[in-house]
Computed example of a mutant assay.
Amino acid sequence: MNETEGALSISTRPCPSGPVVLRLAGDLDHYTGPGLRTAMAELLSGPGADVIADLSALDYCDSTGMTEIITAHHRTEDKGSSFSVAGLSPALTQLFRVAGLDQLLAVYPSVEEALDALGAS
């Protein structure tokens, strides 16, 4: 699946070992958040899979974007799977820390490290 909503590009890459990497690039905000919601609904409509959100190309995330990430986390957990984020920029790392998202979500420096943590590399 590849989708572009405004200034947000969303793509998914299933890994042979099970997890799905959800790559977000651009801006995640009030205008583009529904694109993430739609992508997650599509992704979670099938059998449950662990999701790694690759945020390494995410340039901007506002409070609506953070809410969408939290919602994606809860929806994935409701399916019995895990949701983690990887590749945060220094600015997003600080934002996640201030908002307390680093306490709610599993955060990894890279997708590869997230895959290792899931035993999926």
Score class of each variant (00 low, 15 high):
Thr38Glu: 10
Ile69Pro: 08
Ala91Asn: 13
Asn2Lys: 15
Gly65Tyr: 01
Gly65Thr: 04
Ser84Gly: 12
Leu88Tyr: 02
Ser110Gly: 09
Gly48Phe: 07
Val107Leu: 01
Ala39Glu: 02
Asn2Val: 15
Pro34Leu: 08
Asp54Phe: 06
Arg97Lys: 12
Leu118Gly: 07
Thr71Met: 14
Thr38Leu: 10
Ala57Phe: 10
Leu43Lys: 05
Leu101Arg: 00
Asp29Pro: 00
Ala25Glu: 07
Asp27Met: 09
Leu95Arg: 03
Ala106Pro: 07
Val51Ile: 15
Val98Arg: 04
Thr64Gln: 01
Pro90Glu: 08
Ala106Ser: 14
Gln94Cys: 08
Arg23Phe: 12
Arg13Ile: 06
Ser84Phe: 04
Gln94Glu: 13
Ser89Asp: 01
Leu105Cys: 01
Met66His: 00
Ser9Val: 14
Pro34Gln: 01
Thr12Val: 05
Pro34Lys: 01
Ile69Trp: 02
Arg23Lys: 15
Pro19Cys: 07
Leu115Met: 10
Arg97Cys: 05
Leu115Thr: 03
Leu44Lys: 07
Ile10Met: 02
Arg75Glu: 13
Arg13Met: 01
Thr38Gly: 02
Asp78Thr: 15
Glu68Tyr: 13
Leu58Phe: 10
Val20Gly: 05
Val107Glu: 02
Ala91Glu: 12
Ser17Arg: 10
Arg97Met: 02
Leu55Glu: 03
Leu36Cys: 00
Met1His: 14
Leu92Val: 06
Val51Trp: 09
Gly119Pro: 00
Pro90Trp: 09
Cys61Asp: 08
Ser56Thr: 12
Thr71Pro: 11
His74Phe: 04
Ser82Cys: 15
Ala86Lys: 02
Ala120His: 11
Pro14Met: 00
Ser56Phe: 12
Asp62Asn: 12
Lys79Asn: 14
Leu118Ser: 11
Leu105Gln: 01
Ala49Trp: 04
Ala99Leu: 09
His73Thr: 03
Glu68His: 13
Ser17Phe: 03
Pro16Ser: 11
Ser82Ile: 12
Glu113Lys: 10
Pro47Ser: 14
Asn2Leu: 15
Cys15Asn: 11
Pro14Ile: 01
Ala49Pro: 11
Asp116Lys: 14
Ala49Ile: 05
Ser82Phe: 10
His73Arg: 00
Gly48Pro: 15
Leu24Ile: 01
Gly6Arg: 06
Lys79Trp: 10
Ser121Thr: 12
Leu92Asn: 00
Ile70Tyr: 08
Thr76Phe: 05
Ser121Cys: 08
Leu44Cys: 07
Gln103Phe: 06
Pro34Ser: 05
Gly6Leu: 09
Leu22His: 05
Ala49Met: 11
Glu77Val: 15
Cys15Val: 13
Ser81Pro: 03
Ser17Glu: 11
Ser63His: 11
Ala99Thr: 10
Leu8His: 11
Val21Ser: 08
Leu105Arg: 06
Met1Glu: 13
Leu55Gly: 03
Ser9Arg: 12
Ser84Leu: 04
Gln94Lys: 13
Ala7Asp: 14
Asp102Gln: 05
Val98Gly: 04
Val85Ser: 06
